[in-house]
């Protein structure tokens, strides 16, 4: 069973006016089979946490540790982290002009599984996953995220998660910008991966509506670069009803 352990993580971002502290000591453990929801106001540092785990070069780690099954994640390069089993569904997935989804996915899967997938199996696997997420088969030949709507990008992120089948998936506002039908389709995709019990999910969100489909085992409230409260799904309802101000201790 995989587990990611984040301890005392502090992170800075380099800005034009010099380094700025964003994460101020994050402690969080996510195990395979669990769903953790992370909720917090705009600018509290949720995406920073996600990027820091994935190894984005813009963020520098100033303290603390992140381990995946005991391995030091922070010592790994971005691609090594992915191959070790970390996955990040991005809040704003990036366009890659001239690179088709099918080429991109095949290259990614080959890297992650360590060998090129059998072509016939692969085509079938891709088709099925796309159908499950109600993605038009023609998207396979489109360039990665180029001209995709917000919702199409999010579906494509979950498509990648399903094919990669990571040990730990961080989903950064995957529910934002989805219409009600898309929300259901995407949630079902997440649940399919969760159902295998091999993946731990950290779901970053602003809204409880996705939590009606993807049931969290734990809810964490994020504020000013750290987790300020932990609880069950009732905490999410409390946030929706009363906002974040209640968690701010003067």
């Amino acid at each position: 069973m995989s587990v990611i352990e984040i301890k005392g993580l502090t992170v800075q971002v380099t800005t034009e006016d010099g380094p700025k502290d964003i994460l101020r000591g994050v402690d969080l453990t996510v195990k395979a089979g669990e769903v953790h929801a992370l909720m917090g106001p705009n600018g509290s540092g949720k995406s920073t946490l996600a990027y820091a785990i994935a190894g984005h070069p813009k963020y520098s780690i100033t303290g603390g540790s992140v381990t995946l099954d005991g391995q030091d994640v922070l010592a790994m390069s971005v691609d090594e982290r992915a191959r070790a089993g970390l996955f990040l569904a991005m809040q704003y997935p990036v366009e890659v002009p001239g690179v088709s989804i099918s080429n991109f996915l095949r290259t990614s899967i080959t890297a992650i599984r360590g060998e090129a997938p059998n072509l016939r199996h692969w085509i079938k696997e891709l088709k099925e996953s796309m159908a499950g997420l109600q993605i038009d088969p023609q998207f396979a030949e489109r360039n990665v995220n180029e001209g995709f709507s917000g919702g199409e990008r999010k579906r494509t992120e979950i498509l990648q998660m399903e094919l990669i089948n990571p040990r730990i998936a961080v989903l950064d506002e995957t529910d934002s910008g989805l219409d009600v039908d898309a929300l259901r389709v995407v949630s079902e995709g997440i649940n399919r991966v969760c159902a295998k019990g091999e993946t731990g999910v950290l779901l970053i969100t602003h809204f409880t509506r996705i939590l009606k489909y993807v049931k969290p085992d734990f809810v964490h409230v994020f504020y000013d670069g750290r987790i300020v409260r932990e609880g069950g799904s009732e905490l999410a309802d409390d946030i929706e009803a009363n906002g974040y101000a209640q968690f701010v201790t003067a």
Partner: peptide, 17 residues
């Protein structure tokens, strides 16, 4: 970064781009 976060090595990512 996006490509590498999907397990693709830096060299391979640059080649793709």
């Amino acid at each position: 970064f996006y490509l590498q976060s999907r397990g693709i090595t830096p060299d391979e990512a640059r080649k793709l781009v």
